[in-house]
Write a protein that binds this DNA or RNA. Structure first.
Lengths: 159, 159
DNA sequence: TATTGTTATACTCTATAACTATA
DNA sequence: TATAGTTATAGAGTATAACAATA
């Protein structure tokens, strides 16, 4: 017998909030699936992107900029260091601080992930004209400002 | 010093997938917050809605229809029974089966939750004309069909 | 005393599978 | 044997707070 639960049909009169939430979840899941072959999570991608601007920076600067709790950035960086994508070194100015930056392998991995992200983005936008994509962005921006608790224009960290 | 992490600014060139995902998360969080005063989770709301059509039904029918795993419906119903919103009784035809249905208090609670959901929905749609809401629905429908793994038109359960 | 990075603890969530009582 | 409902267990994920080193 069929044991898989039948999800509710998309009633045309489901609340818009529900439609947005479930579409958002599906999009996030699709992106996570797109990265799965690398063994990395979207958050690792976010960290690598946060490091791409060259200059070595402290872990806390990085975490703060990405909206990642300080206690969580450690594990993410551990994994990236373990894979040889990132290195840590002591700050000469303050020995409490660890400066982190990309290695060449990390730059390559970032390219690879960016390519996968682009494919995922293309999948998301299939069938939407450039104008429709702009319109969707605009409408979601309005919704976001309506519901977000954060200061306006600041998005919660999903990836 | 400021310890709250600064979330990344909504760059206008963030991938659309990210914009959708973070907006979806914010919408879901807003709805959950709207229900918080009742002490119930959006999933309880979904269960009550699933029961509103009167006829008593087995827990598994209900779980299957809502896309909730069988082992999870139990706890949700426990809470609703505890609050006097729902009752369980043995099926006369098959004593393994428990039929569940709304009590009057459950119907009242459902109304209350529906009202809160409506307020949340109004908050989501503030500043959007009816036409824009339709357009947003349409565009998200395209995206959903692009990325969803489920059979088309079937939405994952968020609430 | 305060701060950076780190680790440990405790807590929530959830999926899985075991278990019971019926069929 | 199979099924409905239930419960137990284990694992992932995460937030919080404790901690060591340094300022």
């Amino acid at each position: 017998m069929d044991t898989t639960p039948a999800a509710p049909r998309t009633g045309r009169n489901e609340p818009l909030g529900f439609v947005i939430a479930s579409t958002g979840q599906a999009a996030a899941a699709a992106f996570e699936a797109a990265l799965a072959e690398t063994g990395l999570h979207p958050r690792h991608f976010a960290v690598l992107r946060g490091l791409k601007d060259g200059e070595a920076q402290s872990q806390q600067q990085l975490a703060h900029r990405l909206g990642i709790p300080a206690s969580r950035i450690v594990g993410l960086l551990d994994e990236l260091v373990r894979r040889g994508f990132v290195f840590r070194r002591e700050s000469p100015a303050d020995r409490r601080v660890k400066l982190v930056a990309l290695l060449d392998a990390g730059r390559e991995e970032l390219q690879r992930l960016t390519k996968l992200a682009g494919e995922s983005e293309r999948k998301v936008t299939t069938g939407l004209s450039a104008g429709e994509q702009d319109e969707l962005r605009r409408l979601l921006g309005i919704v976001y400002d309506n519901v977000a608790v954060e200061p306006q224009g600041v998005r919660a960290r999903v990836w």
